[in-house]
Each structure stands twice: as C-alpha cells, then as structure tokens.
Design a binder for these strands. Sequence first.
DNA 1: TTCAATTAGTTCACGTTATAGACTAAATAT
DNA 2: ATATTTAGTCTATAACGTGAACTAATTGAA
Lengths: 382, 382
Amino acid sequence: MTQAVRHDSMRARNLELVLGETARRGPLTRAALAELTGLTKSTVSKLVGDLLDAGFLTETGPTRAGERGRPGVEVVLSGGRVAALGLEVNVDYLAVCLLDLTSTVRFAERHECDNRASDPAEVLGELQKLAHRALGEAHDLTVAGAVLAVSGPVGDGVVFSAPNLGWRDVRAADLLRLPVPVSLDNEANLGALGERWFGAGPADFLFVSGEVGIGAGLVVDSALFRGARGLAGELGHVVVSPTGPRCRCGATGCLETYAGQEALLAAASVPTVAALLTALDARDATATAALAAAGEALGLALTSAVNVLDFDHIVLGGIFGPLFPWLGPAAQRVLAARLSRLRGSVPVLAPSTVGGDAATLGAAGRTIHRVLANPGPYLGRI
Amino acid sequence: MTQAVRHDSMRARNLELVLGETARRGPLTRAALAELTGLTKSTVSKLVGDLLDAGFLTETGPTRAGERGRPGVEVVLSGGRVAALGLEVNVDYLAVCLLDLTSTVRFAERHECDNRASDPAEVLGELQKLAHRALGEAHDLTVAGAVLAVSGPVGDGVVFSAPNLGWRDVRAADLLRLPVPVSLDNEANLGALGERWFGAGPADFLFVSGEVGIGAGLVVDSALFRGARGLAGELGHVVVSPTGPRCRCGATGCLETYAGQEALLAAASVPTVAALLTALDARDATATAALAAAGEALGLALTSAVNVLDFDHIVLGGIFGPLFPWLGPAAQRVLAARLSRLRGSVPVLAPSTVGGDAATLGAAGRTIHRVLANPGPYLGRI
DNA sequence: TTCAATTAGTTCACGTTATAGACTAAATAT
DNA sequence: ATATTTAGTCTATAACGTGAACTAATTGAA
C-alpha cells in the first residue's frame, strides 16, 4: 500500500533525489543538479545547503571549467558523517568491513576459520569481536547499521537453514549483540548487490553464488527482486535433468547435484576447492572434465532462469568465480545453443569482478544505500 | 530514475490514493478515507470534491450505520466518466470488450474465426470493425485507450513473433487505426492481470497461458514483472529434460515439446483441442496418458520457475484451463514431490477462474488501472 | 420531548515547500 | 574596460496539506 504525500515527504523525496544524483554522478554543481533533477536552482540551493550542514555533502571548491560565466562550486558526497558495517559468515572465514558514505573501505578484516557444523553462538561471538574492532575504527562517524550475510534462506532476523554451516532456525540478528541495528540477508542477494555496486554488475543481471548450495541474487533495475516470500533465487534446485542424481532436497537432478561444491569435488576426486584449483591448473583430466560437465548443467539451469526472467547478463560468484575458466565456457555454450534463436542474442556470462568480498561489501552497501535513500533521520545532528 | 516532487505531483499522488482506496474497498465515507489514507478530513474532502466534480466518484447517499453520530455519506467509483477497450487476437477468435471505470462490462463480443497463418492487415481490419462497434457503445464515456492482447513476445507496438498466427514483426498498434491510443501486450501478461483483477489471482502468482506456445505472466505485488527487456515469462522453453525432443526454438526438451498444443494433440492422437476434450471426457486411455505426461513436464518446468521466483500460487489458463482436471493433478504431484521438503509448503496450482476472457479483460483493465493511477488528465473536463 | 454525546463533514487561518524572477557574483570574450 | 555568460542567492508568491473551530446530523438518556 502506498502512503499519503505531505510536505515533509515531498521534501524527503527531493533530498533523496539530490543526494542520490550526487552519489551516482560524482562531483556536481548546484546548477547541474537543478538540470538533472528538474528542480529549480533555488530549491536545489536550499536542499544542498541542508545536506552540507548535515555533513552529507562537502564543497570541493570552484570548477575550472574554462568556459564563459561564473564557475560553479562542485559538491561531493562526504564520507565524514555516516558509516555502515558489513558482516559475513562463510564456511571458511568470518569477514567484516566498514564503509563510509562514499563507499570507501575504512576497515576490513577477514578471519580464516572452519565453520562447518559449527555452533552459531560461538561463531557469532567471534564475529562480534571482529565487528567491535571495526566499530572502533568508526571514530566520530555514526554507524547507521550492520547487515550480516549468511548463505541459505533467511527472513526477519532468522537463518532458516544454512546447509554449509549446519545451522537451522538460528536467530542470528539477536545473537549478535551490537550497539547498532543488525539485519540479516542471504549471501547470494548481498553478493549480487556487491557486484552491482562495487563490481561490473549492470542494472539487470543474475548473480550466481556457488557454494555448498547454489543461490542466486536477482537484480532488476538495480534493486533486488526477492519474490513473494523473499526466497527467490534457489537456483540450486532448478531441474537440470528429472532423472538425475538424488538431491538433499528430496528431488532428483537438481543443479546442485551437478554443480554444487560437494558434487564438484566428488566428480574431480579432490578433497577441497584449493585442491581442485591445483588439479585444474595442472591440467588434470578428471578435474577438467568434471568442471565442463558442471558447466553444462549450470548452463541448463541458467537457460531456464533466463527464459523465465529475461536476463541479458549473468555473473558467476562464490567458488564459481575462480572456477570460471573451466566452468564458464561450457555453460556459455549451452546458453548459446539453447537461447540464441529464440532471443536473438545470448546472455553474457562473466565471473564476479569483486570476488570473495562481494557479499560483505554488499552487506555494508545496503546500509549505505538505505541512508542515501532516506537521509532525514541523520539530518538534525552534527 | 525517479522524479522530483512538486506540489502538483503531491496532489496527483493523493488523488490516486483516494481514488484507489475507493476502487479497492468499495463504498467509503470521507471519514473512512481519511482513516485509510492518513490524510486529514479536510484534505480528503477537497480531493473527493474534485473527483465528484470530475465524474470519477458519485455519492450513494447517507449510510444507515445505526451507530451514534452523524452518518457519513458514502462515495463509490462512478462508471459514467471513462471507459477502456480490451482487444484480443487469438488463433480461433477475435474478441473485444468495453469496460467502464467500475470494471463493469459495457460491451463484449467474440468473433469466431481461424487466424492460423493469417494476414495481419486482414485480421486487424476485422478486429477494427469489432472495436468500432464497441466504441459505439461507449456513448458519452471517454474511452481512455485500447490494449491489444497477442500471444508471443511483443514490444513497443510491434509483435515480434506470434507463432500461432504465423506473424513476425507486425506493427500491430499502427495497423489498427482507432480513434483512441492503442498499445500492445503479451497475452500471457494480460491474462495474468485479468486473473488478478477479475478472477482469483492473489497478489503474487504465476499465470500460465497454454496455447501453441506456453507463456507465463508474472504477477508480483499485484503488478506485472516483465524482466530486463520485457520478455520475461517464456515458460515454454524452460528445460524439462535436456535430452528431450527437438523444439522449434532450436533447443531440445523444452516444456513446449511436452505440453505445447501441438505436442499434446499429437500425443493424444486427436486433431483439435475440442476433439481432445471429447476424448478425455470419454476416458480415452491414450489421451488421458498424454495429458498426465504433459502435466508432469509442466510440473517440472514450474518447479524450476518456483525455485527461481518463489511463487506460492500458480494459475493455469489458456487451453490448460479446460484441461486442468487431466493435467493439473500430475503437475501438482511433481511440485509436491520436488518442493515440499525445501520450502515447507507446496505452491497451489489452480485453473483460471476467468477462463478464455482473461486476456481481453486484462487488456481493458490495464487502461482502467492506468486512469485510476493517474486521473489528473481527465479531471478538468466533464 | 429535550439535551448531551458522538460522529461527519466544511471552513479558514496557517505552515511548509517549491517556484519564478530579480539580483549579485565571478568568470571569459571583445 | 565592458559586454556576455553562467552560478548561486534572495524574496515574494502560489500550491497544498494541516489543525482547530465550526456546523450538521444522528443516537441515547433524562
């Protein structure tokens, strides 16, 4: 349901507009902002003034345009007011990062550890320590919030199931006691946002997160598409071949049984992802064949996803990122074979450009974007 | 990109809000509207006054509440101001309907004819005659626009490909000369909207349109989801079995090769859908088995779609509507077998409650909703 | 029957916000 | 030096929603 518009929401909306344009298009004069937003110069002046006072923007001095007329004074996003915390629990590590409003990394740390079949309280306690170190680096910045990335379906502060960690129904947002609001999201969703904001993700694309399970983050018009219940993107259980191997979900021939981490390692006869990469680098035939087969299965699942959702770009992240050279071409071939006639073009498949930090950065970025979209609450103080 | 908010857009927004609530929740007093929208009584009075003046609303006299206090005067949507035209070109018929703002059908006609491998200009000429009959029934109503439903991918007034009609790259919106703005949309999309507005479609569901091809309309939060290029919903080419029969799209084992109209008729050894229904009613073993097999394939494709998009409700339309008793149970079984463990619940599969008129009604409904969402342009006149 | 209580709807002074255009400021071109 | 051009500010104004006072119409109790 939509809300009534009053003067204050009108103002909030226009503040967001000015702040958003400045964030998106770098240094901008008031005149340029007026042109871009369609607001008048006077209105822009007033809004920019308020954002300067609040510490969200700073002036960078007069432009040296070399053109006729009075040079404008450019304003840019200021990193000195608000920060955001990004957290991630992965199978092999805990990660934390602190970003300011300009998306500059103020602090980042990764703690390598094995979280397989772990105790949620213990792991989150360890993460809390990391988070406090990051908060210490915030100094005088207001930390607007923290977002935690976990793989597997989540909702309303609860991890329903994280197969790689062995967690079920963990109230992670509550367990992680922090002096800032904590929220929770799926690692694939946050990875997708990370790729959009910090990598090469276009406005519409499908981000695939290959881990023990295979998740997907759907980005539509630069925003996450979450589906009716918030559980969209279960790419791992898309049907690849109805008569295929049995999956832990109870079905058969799901993508996960072909390209999930466990299936990959078993097919390549190696114990770890690191060993798999070594084998591939050494041109091991079994490993290479295993990856090509997995790539084909991935291509089939992506074909179905593209048919339903009409994506032109697909980014492979998680372990599929480093494995891309061996997995990507096969998947791309399947996509080309099955989609070129119908669509006229073939979706572009590419590895993540952000790499392993996509989800952590995306997590922090979510808060950054929340603040940029609604600076009101932070406007009074300074 | 979002737009700046000025006084006029604030007003437009609140007008939409008042009009929308009245449309959604039936007769409402000004006091109730104030409560619902969060606007003050004075604002609501002013907005309702304008909508009454413009002929969008009418007062239905004082309420007989029986409670203490002055009884309120209820207002309802008025059908006497604006109408909308819905058009459809199907393989077996042309259809037209005229709806007023209250979604009351003012005129509807269906012209049975065989449009297989037809000449676009000829067919659209015939449709134009029908449309003019409908426009004649509009009398003093302003017809705000016409929307034409065609099966297959469309975009910007052009039918890219309608396999059932044999059309390719037809500029249908231009060919159909009408005295009102004409736009074009996919039959599956409009069927989905028809089911949402005139049938039992919930706020989030997948509408499947079974015809020669199999399309899907994705409804998310009561709005269509069109994908990056507007071509979302190609359910017919979702992978059911990678080694299956060759499809006209160049791939193999697409859903269409199992459950497309041609595949169905061939498997059941009947020449037409009518004959298929007769055979099924007569408990013909071949036909029954063919439908069960198609249902399983449909179930597999829907499994993939649900995994990616997280739908809880699926509505089967087009020829799948009448075929539901023979096709639905098998599909539902596959969905249950493959999704229950992972999701905890199984998506509900149901036949369309609107039937064959879903797309035509959806087409007219699109214009109705466009006007309700932006009554401004029609406010001055009366 | 009368009057208090209650709810609906209108009116109007007011506050907030964006606008338009005049005005000042600072550069380049002639 | 002066005209021209562009940036930014200032002020009066208009649009719109708000809030409180006010009128209207009903029920219920004395």
